Computed example of a mutant assay.
Amino acid sequence: MTKLSVNINKIATLRNSRGGNVPNVVQFAIDVQKFGAEGVTIHPRPDERHIRYQDARDLKPVVHTEFNIEGNPVKKFMDLVLEVQPTQVTLVPDADDALTSNAGWDTLKHKDFLIEVIQECKRNNIRTSIFVDPDLKMIAGAKLTGTDRIELYTEQFAHEFSLGNKAGIQPYVEAALLANELGLGINAGHDLSLENIRFFKENIPNLLEVSIGHALISESLYLGIENVVNMYLNKLK
């Protein structure tokens, strides 16, 4: 079964909007794991506008499933990753002022930089994943960096699916087939939801993990977090 990693950034956004510690990010991570989530994802940004760097440290002792830290591998971020030692680091090329992740790596242009970062992570026994668009050249380039996995950036799929265009899955199928051929593990994330996750899962061979935050938290406002986590798990079977 494809693993569900819950991105809890939005919980931190809500907490930060009022100050204090409500909702409690650490308790939320404990709860989603109790409800069946197989991982917890955070994406700290330099301005700490949602997840704070200290949150990563506080979460480490309580995440007994897979702990995935996403971010742009600038020095401050990498120092945090090497200190916390999560299960997985997902390298994302987002700008400091990006509202959310909006593009994958150019794995050819940034090959040498990614090799250096990935080697450092591997020396510390941290699994690596590279955020990429479903572009076959970028998938092939990812292989050359030595990464363990790729994370397919699924915004375009989600947009096409919402318009009723199921053919929008095809570039992702081709990307997954090439990744499988090259021996790269496959993760996916961005705008995946209860509406589209089953179709995506059914069409992507050997999908190992999905990271879902915004949609999952939004759906939980209506349906409840425990219920929503289990709805995702059922659709991922």
Rank of each mutant, 00 (worst) to 15 (best):
Q156A: 14
F77Q: 10
M138Y: 07
Q85F: 07
L114V: 01
G146R: 13
T107P: 02
S129P: 05
K76V: 10
K137V: 05
D148S: 06
V62D: 10
E66F: 09
A95I: 00
L152E: 00
I150H: 03
E160M: 09
Q85C: 13
L144C: 11
A158D: 00
P73A: 04
G104P: 08
Q88I: 11
L91K: 05
F157P: 01
Q119S: 08
L82I: 14
T90S: 13
I118L: 05
L152C: 04
G146Y: 12
K111N: 14
L144R: 15
V89I: 07
V63D: 03
T154L: 07
T65Y: 06
Q85E: 14
D106K: 11
D112L: 09
E120N: 12
T128N: 04
A95N: 09
N102T: 06
V62W: 13
P93E: 01
R149L: 08
T100V: 07
K109F: 10
G146L: 12
T145A: 11
H64P: 00
V62P: 02
F113N: 10
D135K: 10
Q156F: 08
I150F: 04
P73D: 03
A142Q: 10
D97K: 15
P73K: 06
T87D: 07
G104L: 06
Q88D: 03
V63E: 02
E83L: 12
L114H: 09
E66V: 03
F113C: 06
K143R: 14
F113E: 14
V84W: 11
V117H: 08
G141I: 02
E116L: 07
E151W: 04
R123K: 15
M138S: 07
V89M: 14
E83T: 12
D97P: 05
D135R: 08
V92N: 07
D106I: 07
P134R: 01
Q119V: 03
A140P: 01
I118M: 04
D79A: 14
P93W: 00
I130W: 03
D106N: 15
F131G: 00
T65C: 12
A140Q: 09
G141H: 01
A95V: 03
L99H: 14
V63G: 05
I139Y: 03
R127T: 09
C121Y: 02
F77I: 05
F113V: 08
A140Y: 02
A103R: 15
V81F: 06
N68G: 06
I115K: 14
R123C: 04
P86S: 11
D96V: 13
N102I: 08
L108M: 11
L152F: 11
I150Y: 04
E116A: 14
H110K: 14
M138T: 05
D94F: 09
D148Q: 09
N102Q: 08
V74K: 13
P134I: 02
A98H: 12
V81N: 02
E160T: 04
V81S: 04
V84D: 07
E83P: 01
